[in-house]
């Protein structure tokens, strides 16, 4: 499934002006802190209004400034896992996972939502966490629950903002494999922001986009970027 993002947006001190595209395989977005990566993900999710551009996923137009199309986030079929995982702190793990099911129309009854959420937690070996609240989970557990919640609604495009950054070294290694396995099994597109070259390798991302000050300064295969880095940041990233 081919997806394309070409947008301009205001992002704090600078203008974001970026074009990113991909198909079934995960695409990786790299760049220094404050370069606009998170803003780009938010623009794609519908959480940050762009100034102009076009966003399509598999022929489905999410945003087109010329045609005056701008779908609300809930109409975009996007899964978004922000930095810090975005679990709702006032809901238990089970309720967090079931949250996404409550918005389906017609709304499934509460007992069905809880059964479906419990089944999913069972599937990812997290059944024992069902009654816990997010603040009591480890980083790895939060990430698994957040990912499961995002995938439950079967989004067309998954956005992951530094999914492994907050984990310690050991759980990062475990979670990296888990994430790569899940994304490969899903065979649907994903856009992953990362600061770690090992993530790029583990995800077997065919394309990497490097972003600096709101602009894509280089894109290509990881090998391209490693061999011909266009900036100090890219050189340092692949060292």
């Amino acid at each position: 499934m081919r997806w394309q993002v070409q947008v301009r947006a205001r992002a704090g001190d600078f203008d974001l002006d970026a074009a990113v595209a991909g198909d079934g395989a995960p695409v990786v977005l790299i760049g220094p802190n404050g370069s606009g990566k998170t803003t780009l993900l938010r623009v794609v999710s519908g959480g940050h209004p762009p100034l102009a551009g076009r966003i399509t996923i598999g022929g489905h137009v999410l945003y087109d400034s010329q045609a005056g199309v701008c779908l609300a986030p809930e109409e975009r079929r996007i899964g978004y896992v922000p930095q810090g995982y975005g679990l709702f702190p006032h809901l238990s793990v089970l309720e967090n996972v079931a949250f996404g099911l409550a918005a389906a129309r017609p709304r499934p009854p509460r007992s069905h939502r809880r059964t479906a959420a419990a089944a999913l937690l069972e599937e990812i070996d997290c059944a024992h966490l069902a009654a816990r609240f997010p603040a009591t989970l480890s980083g790895g557990e939060k990430q698994r629950v957040a990912l499961a919640r995002a995938l439950l609604s079967e989004p067309d495009l998954l956005l992951l903002d530094e999914p492994l950054a907050a984990l310690d070294a050991a759980s990062r290694r475990d979670m990296r494999g888990y994430l790569a396995g899940h994304l490969a099994a899903r065979d649907k597109p994903a856009l992953v922001v990362t600061h770690d070259e090992r993530d790029v390798r583990a995800l077997e991302a065919p394309a990497v986009y490097a972003m600096e000050e709101g602009a894509i300064i280089q894109s290509g295969s990881p090998t391209d970027l490693a061999e011909h880095p266009a900036s100090d940041f890219v050189r340092e990233f692949f060292r």
Binding site: G47, P73, E74, Y80, P82, Q83, G84, A103
Partner: peptide
């Protein structure tokens, strides 16, 4: 209230009021 939590709620299908 973290912006990201509200965006996540929307991507999970909630309306602005939801």
């Amino acid at each position: 209230v973290d912006d990201d939590l509200l965006i996540v709620a929307r991507t999970l299908g909630q309306s602005p009021l939801g």
